[in-house]
Amino acid sequence: MISYAPLWKTMEHRGATTYTLQIMGGISSSTIRRLKAGESVSTNTLDALCKVLDCDLTDIVEYLPEQ
C-alpha cells in the first residue's frame, strides 16, 4: 500500500500548508482530500507536489507492504 505520511512531514518541515499546494501547485481541494484519505492520485499530482515542495518522490510517498 502507498502511504502519504512522508508528504505531511515534508510539508511541516518546509512550512507548507494545503493552501500552499492549492495556490502554488495547482492541486485541487478534491485531490488534497484524496491524499488525506490515502487514496490514489495521478503521477501528474506527484510531479506537482515534488515541484512545489522542491523534494524527491520519496519525500512524498512510501510503500508499505500489506501484511
Rank of each mutant, 00 (worst) to 15 (best):
Y4A: 06
A5E: 15
P6M: 06
P6Y: 02
L7Y: 08
L7M: 06
W8P: 03
W8N: 08
K9C: 08
T10H: 01
H13F: 04
H13Q: 13
H13N: 11
R14E: 07
R14M: 02
G15R: 14
A16M: 11
T17E: 11
T17P: 14
T20L: 12
L21N: 00
Q22I: 14
Q22C: 07
I23A: 12
I23P: 00
I23F: 10
M24W: 14
M24K: 10
M24D: 15
M24H: 13
G26F: 09
I27A: 04
S28Q: 03
S28K: 03
S29L: 06
S29C: 06
S30F: 01
T31A: 11
T31V: 08
R34H: 03
R34A: 10
R34G: 02
R34L: 07
K36W: 00
A37P: 00
G38I: 07
G38T: 08
E39Q: 14
S40L: 02
T43F: 13
T43H: 11
T43E: 13
N44T: 08
N44Y: 06
N44Q: 10
N44C: 02
T45Q: 01
L46C: 00
L46V: 04
L46Q: 02
L46E: 00
A48S: 06
A48G: 00
L49P: 01
L49N: 05
C50M: 14
K51Y: 14
K51G: 12
K51A: 14
K51D: 15
L53P: 01
D54L: 11
C55G: 13
T58S: 15
T58D: 15
D59W: 04
I60R: 06
I60P: 10
I60E: 12
V61G: 05
V61D: 06
V61I: 15
E62V: 13
E62Y: 06
Y63Q: 13
L64N: 15
L64W: 15
P65A: 15
P65N: 15
Q67V: 09
Q67S: 11
